[in-house]
Nucleic acid binder design. Structure first.
Lengths: 256, 256
DNA sequence: CCATCTTTGTGCACGCGTTCACAAAGACAT
DNA sequence: ATGTCTTTGTGAACGCGTGCACAAAGATGG
């Protein structure tokens, strides 16, 4: 993963395995693309290819949701989009606050992928008084003092932390105390949270370090005289990447 | 005692599990913080708490690297920092190119966590001719036309894609053709790459969707009359989540 | 209605990762 | 040296996730 998470041994969350949940957004993205092309149905094989996973895995994943396919035909795209959206809770609107409007925070505020998935940026918050009132992505930045009020007034349950590492735990505590129960953490720190609060972290530097490890390994084997794992550029044949799963990495931004 | 240790006999990186590799950067971060506080040694229990993992897991992870601890004492911080850095390939400099200098690309260019870990931004690349020459994070943006030349001249093997989804595969193909063998992908698309090329992806929207799933589940259980997983705000008591130690707060390793 | 063909849904086996629990190793005091 | 105490390193058990392979289900055509 990439991605990483920090919590309990999974209470039977509706019976859907964590690994499956992590892949549902992937399927949803692929299905949305098909939907926009007005494709009516899709087979597990096709959809799996589009999502970059194994078709057996995809079918097993869907089997946890129920029997939404038709044998001999495949899956109804629109219906499946709806079912996955519902399962992920995307049929409702999720107000989100972003704390720490530096370069990264601003980038997140401008990121289009949120709104299109049912996430609404309820507020941008920064500790710097200079930032207050300044509009970012069309939304005026508010000072940290307003944090509790905003969260309670808007019923925010998801917070994004994009502050420097030193401020992250403090911000986290305030978010949680105010009622936030899910946190996406971009600060390079381990967050302490009470039970019942979910934390997912995205550490850019960690992802690069994992790549560096493999890069070094490749270089080492190459230098070892053995025929390199990577054939000459011209000889390589295009081929889907083995695995891009969030686990990695278990992956994920942020994963991990 | 830091220095006098016997040399490891060829740590075959082949034997290090992927899950362990993904955690090494986490340990490294915690160790760096300890190092800056001039802490000479640390026990597996303490370090595990600081990194937010189980101590048994940490010991097993380290066992794949070799026997670097001293029973009854713990691990020598400096020595371990060095060993992990070496294992991850961070003792050498990794030139990195960032393609797509929008909000996110600019944020990445400004991210301090790269330089401090041995990653050097060799170039910023954007398809927009308007951007060419404009400095971002002190580095002038170059046009996509220069991509191949830059990669070959600087021997770049790691590329970061921060373009819109539509351009990602095309950029990826050019990166790979020019010699890049590791890619960190921020675009919400599945990338096709030849064998031997590593891809890690970070998708902000996916992480939020996973949080939304758990959030919905929490809300559902609460509404189902069952005693909610999350007690009322006022009643919650601060408590380390799962396996994160009580200490937890490791002061800012890196500025962000 | 029957045969055939496609594709789903899943039982099963396997491998990886996690965790427990403890023997071995070394520090330290006497 | 001897004993005690702390902490590592790891064997073994367990659980989860993955992928194979196939039977069941339904569509389609004659």
């Amino acid at each position: 993963m990439a991605t990483g998470r920090a919590h309990r041994p999974a209470t039977r969350s509706r019976g859907i395995p964590e690994a499956t949940v992590a892949r549902l957004p992937l399927y949803l993205r692929a299905l949305t693309a098909l939907s926009e092309r007005s494709v009516p149905t899709v087979s597990s094989e096709e959809l799996a290819a589009a999502a970059g996973v194994n078709s057996a895995k995809l079918r097993k994943d869907f089997s946890y949701l129920g029997s939404y396919g038709t044998r001999g035909v495949g899956y109804d795209v629109e219906y499946l989009v709806y079912q996955i959206s519902r399962e992920l809770g995307l049929t409702q609107d999720w107000p989100v606050v972003i704390v720490g409007i530096g370069n990264l925070g601003a980038a997140l505020a401008n990121y289009g992928g949120f709104a299109s998935r049912g996430f609404r940026v309820a507020a941008l918050i920064d500790a710097d008084p200079q930032m207050a009132g300044k509009p970012v992505a069309g939304i005026p930045v508010q000072h940290t003092d307003e944090l509790e009020k905003i969260i309670q007034d808007d019923g925010v349950s998801i917070g994004v932390i994009a502050t420097p590492a030193g401020a992250a735990q403090q911000v986290c505590d305030r978010l949680v105390a105010a009622g936030v129960t899910s946190i996406l953490n971009f600060a390079p720190t381990v967050l302490n949270v009470p039970e019942g609060v979910d934390v997912r972290k995205v550490d850019l530097s960690i992802e690069l370090q994992i790549l560096a490890f493999h890069e070094q390994r490749k270089a080492g084997e190459e230098a070892a005289g053995d025929a390199g794992v990577v054939p000459p550029v011209a000889a390589r044949k295009q081929q889907p990447a083995a695995d891009q799963g969030p686990d990695g990495d278990v992956p994920a931004v942020m994963p991990a």
